[in-house]
Design a protein around this nucleic acid. Structure first.
Length: 430
RNA sequence: GUGGGCGUAGCUCAGUUGGUUAGAGCACUGGAUUGUGAUUCCAGGGGCCGGGGGUUCGAAUCCCCUCGUCCACCCCA
């Protein structure tokens, strides 16, 4: 055998064992998002590097060391998108969607970051993102978080919690940064190496650090929430009230800091319980408000709110039993005559929306039945000489064992017997 | 980028003072059962023991290097 070509580290195939689950998740997301008035956008995977430099923040890890950047044949610096919001905002501006009062958009697709892969983290990973552009009401924030919560519930996700925070705006954040900096300087020797290093550039990070020293040092630190300006404070209260009113459970986490620089005011995360299925990466979805980004990227001043869901992480949390599949039929024609009769029947069954697979290998019925079992067929459809003579079809229930004969010319009766065609989602696995 | 675990049959894994021809379960093929799978019984096929180098009469086993993978740190969805 020739030498095997393998995939790139951190770039994974989604094989049939899990693709059904993914369709199930995406299908639910589409359905739920549409009920909130969102429309899908399809965005390119490759953008000019400059877009990310200008949006994400040049001291973030993403910009500093995680981007897949290369020069194309024309000499332009291009980058595989490390996140979706920047691209979406670019498209919003370029497509002049700001001529509408409010744009509600969602997207799905792969993102790319050069990191060491581990549980819940891959170099190509998938996100489902939703963004609302052109609305600054905190109630909109709450409604959008509610939408995410509704999706989680539809997917049977348990053991997750919504955490919210407010990072303030261009008015009040710098002041808080100063206050915090002053506080941390007094505790510099308690901080971990990392936090000590970036205390001047990004003191907020220390709040989010897991190191014990940092936790203790920041225990009594002044809270962002307490230093919000009046307008941000009212906005944050509006968010909390609206979430409560909607029955979306949440907790305020004033230590929550996001990894991208463009966030203002509301930020939130949906995180899984510690020790759960997610491992160390406990954030399933996260997002917030980015009121300055559109303007920074050359559009009109536009308040925005959005979030992104980590597809792989969400897939680890969803209730797989909810991913209903429709029955799979396995046709076993014994002989040429049966094959011809079977072909007509199969076409009729498929036209009714049923899933049918035909066995072409032939041989002993025993072997055919074994293959039917191996592909997890729900019913085996057997056509042999006996059936042709009687003008019937043998339908064996592979799960329960019984079998019946049904008129060969009555595909509708077959459909009814096997549970009928549904418009159901793809077969669930895993 | 840093640290740790693991690479043996298609899959999950056994395999120690280094010693004949490297094992099991599942899967696969055939038979017991020539029209009935998943259960039972029998038989069979299948391995550069991740790759390279070294120590040794002899290496899956010991040493070094390398690649892959998983988990964690960092950071994040």
């Amino acid at each position: 055998m020739a030498v095997k070509v393998t995939s790139i580290r951190g770039f994974n195939d989604i094989l049939p064992a899990t693709s059904g689950l993914w369709s199930h998740i995406e299908g639910n997301a589409r359905r739920v998002f549409e009920t909130y008035g969102f429309s899908e956008v399809r965005l390119p995977v490759l953008e000019k590097t400059d877009l990310f430099l200008r949006s994400i923040g040049d001291t973030t890890d993403i910009i500093e060391k995680q981007m897949y950047t290369f020069t194309d044949l024309h000499g332009d610096s291009l980058t595989l998108r490390p996140e979706g919001t920047a691209s979406l905002v670019r498209a919003y501006i370029e497509g002049k969607l700001y001529t509408e009062p409010v744009a509600r958009l969602f997207y799905t697709g792969p993102m790319f970051r050069y990191e060491r892969p581990q549980k819940g983290r891959y170099r190509q990973f998938y996100q489902i993102g939703a963004e609302v552009l052109g609305e600054d009401s905190p109630v909109l924030d709450a409604e959008t978080i509610e939408m995410l919560w509704v999706l989680m519930n539809a997917l049977g996700v348990e053991g997750v919690v919504v955490e919210v925070n407010s990072l303030g705006c261009a008015e009040c954040r710098p002041a808080y940064k100063e206050t915090l900096l002053g506080f941390l300087r007094g505790k510099a020797d308690c901080l971990c190496e990392n936090c000590a290093r970036r205390i001047e550039t990004n003191p907020l990070r220390a709040l989010d650090c897991k190191a014990e020293g940092c936790r203790e040092a920041t225990d009594t630190a002044p809270s962002v929430v307490d230093s919000l300006c009046q307008s941000c404070s009212e906005h944050f209260k509006g968010l909390k009230d609206a979430l409560e009113q909607r029955g979306v459970p949440f907790q305020v986490n004033s230590r929550m800091v996001r990894g991208l620089d463009y966030y203002t005011r509301t930020t939130f995360e949906v995180t899984a319980r510690a020790g759960g299925a997610l491992g160390a990466q406990n954030a399933v979805a996260a997002g917030g408000r980015y009121d300055g980004l559109v303007e920074e990227l050359g559009g009109p001043a536009t308040p925005c709110f959005g979030f992104a869901i980590g597809m792989e992480r969400l897939a680890m949390l969803v209730d797989k039993t909810l991913a209903k599949s429709q029955p799979l039929l396995y046709l076993i024609p014994m002989g040429e005559k049966a094959a011809a009769v079977g072909a007509t029947l199969v076409r009729a069954l498929r036209d009714l929306g049923l899933s049918v697979v035909v066995d072409y290998r032939g041989g002993a019925l025993k072997g055919c039945m074994k293959r039917a079992d191996r592909v997890s067929a729900d019913f085996a459809l057997i056509i042999g000489d006996n059936e042709i003579e009687a003008g019937t079809l043998t339908v064996k229930n592979m799960k329960e064992g019984g079998q019946v004969n049904i008129d060969l010319r009555s595909p509708a009766i077959v459909a009814a017997h096997v549970g009928g065609a549904t418009t159901g989602t793809a077969r669930a696995e895993g």
